[in-house]
């Protein structure tokens, strides 16, 4: 996922400065890693260099003077292209969970039981977060919950297959 495209998406509404963009990023992409300030400014400079954003003024609201950026026509075209690009659906299996089991084979059952518990503990935390009823947080929690649930179902299948192999 490209941070540049996300920032362009946030700039579509109106021109914003870096601090505003960081705050909105962290709110809208609840559950994602918070965006470090350094990365916000580096990304804005890159967007400016590529002609997707430009400096449109400065703003001072009690604190330091901040540079305000706005999206360019080229930026809108690029954002539109990105939003409509279909993501290649999982071309490789890249999960550390899968790698461990692939290496350990049927010896992985103890690990899988412990991993199952860790997954469910995280699912309980995410479920508790949903009680907040903040739409962005609920959306992020649903996403994470359904992916963890998919892992858990795979763990069940893997355990069942190991049992079959034991009996064979």
């Amino acid at each position: 996922m490209s941070t540049g495209h996300v920032l362009l998406g946030l700039l579509v509404e109106r021109p914003k400065h870096g601090y505003e963009l960081k705050k909105e990023h962290d709110h809208r992409l609840a559950g994602a890693k918070p965006l470090p300030y350094g990365q916000v400014y580096a990304t804005l400079q890159r967007l400016e260099r590529d002609g997707f954003a430009e400096v449109s003024g400065t703003r001072q609201e009690g604190g330091p003077e901040r540079t305000v950026y706005s999206i360019t026509d080229g930026g809108r075209t690029e954002l539109e292209r990105w939003l409509n690009t279909v993501e290649p659906p999982a071309p490789y299996v890249t999960s550390p969970l899968f790698s461990r089991v692939a290496v350990a084979g049927t010896a992985a059952d103890g690990f899988l039981m412990r991993q199952r518990e860790a997954h469910l503990a995280r699912m309980r935390e995410l479920t508790a977060q949903k009680a907040s009823d903040v739409p962005a947080q609920v959306l992020a929690a649903d996403y994470a919950l359904q992916h963890l649930d998919a892992d858990l179902r795979w763990i069940e299948t893997a355990l069942a297959r190991m049992k079959e192999d034991d009996l064979a």
């Binding site: 039981m113 997954h119 469910l120 699912m123 309980r124 995410l126 479920t127 649930d149 858990l152």
Partner: peptide, 25 residues
């Protein structure tokens, strides 16, 4: 049988073949 329902509970008891497996909560 739904892990997402189980995540609403304070605690989970897993049964396998009529027993709580050794080491499971």
């Amino acid at each position: 049988h739904d892990n997402r329902v189980a995540a609403y509970a304070d605690r989970e008891i897993v049964l396998r073949d009529g027993a709580v497996p050794a080491g499971a909560p």
